[in-house]
Simulated scan of single mutants.
Amino acid sequence: MNNKALIHLTKLNEQLSFIDLEIDNQIEKCESAIDIILKSIDVVKKIISKNSFKSDLEEVLFFKETKPQFTSKLIYYNMIYKIEMKRPNGGNRILKKYYHNELLKLKSFFDNELEFYQYYRSGSTYLDYKYFQRGKFDIKLALDSYYFEADTTFSTSHDFKVARILANDLIQLYLESQLVMIENKDNGEKSQRKPNIKLMWTGSKVALTELLYALHSEGVFNNGAVDLKNIAEYFEQVFEIDLGQYRRTFLEIRARKSDRTKFINSLNETLLKRMDNADDIV
């Protein structure tokens, strides 16, 4: 049964990646993501209701590892939606304070759930039969009130807490990335030492667009928590180039019948040739 759920998880990740590429506005992105995640969870819930787990271990693995990956995404996008909806208008100092306070809220959760957090992070398993099997809750394990209102056919006493841990990791990265961007903006407004040489992009705009999407897909900027639009604007500013309708350009690249990653492949071939050239040390 876990295999069926994992197939839907892969599909969900692909859909979320597409949303991340196509939607720049963070609030709209969260709204679309939440809608897709809810539908995906509903599908998995129906799979569980129509099938029985082959063993207690399979049930534990589903509620400890698989289901939290769905739920954590729902928690993450819902929290980011709330954070951005309540974001105050003001200067960088006000925004810094706001995001720092949100980080403190995450710390409060970890402090309150320290015992279970340590159990989960250490890879312990001796209480799994109570934490991650349906109907095996123990009131002495400090249960959250929500559990008593949850669908007990699709919930255990602690699968939601695992999801919160996973989601909070992502939320922390998001908040820290926002603080980094604010800090960079502050630094950009101050006088800084400029390079002695000005670099200009002399390749094609199509090639730069291909590189732009590749770097964004790899998540190499700000731990992956940065919008495609922000990266595009950064490239345009640094290289003083107008990428125009880069999304349409990407669609044209994607529609190529062959060699869709023409520029990336060329980079790979050129670098390999340089490495193979014994005389070209650096």
Rank of each mutant, 00 (worst) to 15 (best):
K11R: 14
L12G: 05
L16I: 10
L21A: 12
L21F: 07
N25K: 03
Q26H: 03
K29G: 06
K29M: 06
C30D: 01
C30W: 00
E31R: 09
S32C: 07
L38R: 15
L38T: 15
K39I: 08
K39M: 07
D42P: 12
V43W: 02
K46E: 00
I47R: 03
K50P: 01
N51H: 00
S55Q: 02
E59W: 08
V60M: 03
L61A: 11
E65K: 04
E65V: 09
E65F: 11
F70D: 04
L74I: 06
Y76P: 01
Y77N: 03
M79C: 13
Y81Q: 13
E84Y: 06
P88S: 11
N89Q: 14
G91M: 09
L95M: 08
L95E: 05
Y98L: 13
N101H: 13
K107Y: 00
K107H: 07
N112W: 01
Q118I: 07
Y119C: 11
R121L: 14
S122K: 14
S122Y: 12
Y129D: 11
K130L: 10
Q133D: 02
R134L: 05
R134D: 05
F137N: 04
D138K: 02
D144G: 01
S145G: 03
S145H: 11
Y146N: 13
Y146A: 13
Y146L: 12
D151G: 02
S155L: 00
T156H: 00
R164V: 12
R164Q: 11
L166K: 08
A167R: 02
N168I: 03
D169F: 04
Q172C: 10
L175C: 01
E183N: 06
K185V: 06
D186A: 11
K190V: 05
Q192N: 12
R193W: 12
P195G: 05
N196D: 11
I197K: 15
K198H: 05
K198S: 08
W201Q: 07
W201G: 00
S204F: 10
K205V: 07
L208C: 13
L212D: 05
S217K: 15
E218L: 15
G219Y: 06
F221R: 02
G224T: 01
K229V: 05
N230E: 14
I241L: 12
I241N: 09
Q245P: 06
Q245F: 02
Y246V: 01
A255T: 05
A255W: 06
S258E: 14
I264T: 13
I264D: 13
I264C: 14
N265P: 04
L267S: 02
N268S: 15
L272H: 11
K273C: 06
R274P: 07
R274S: 14
N277K: 14
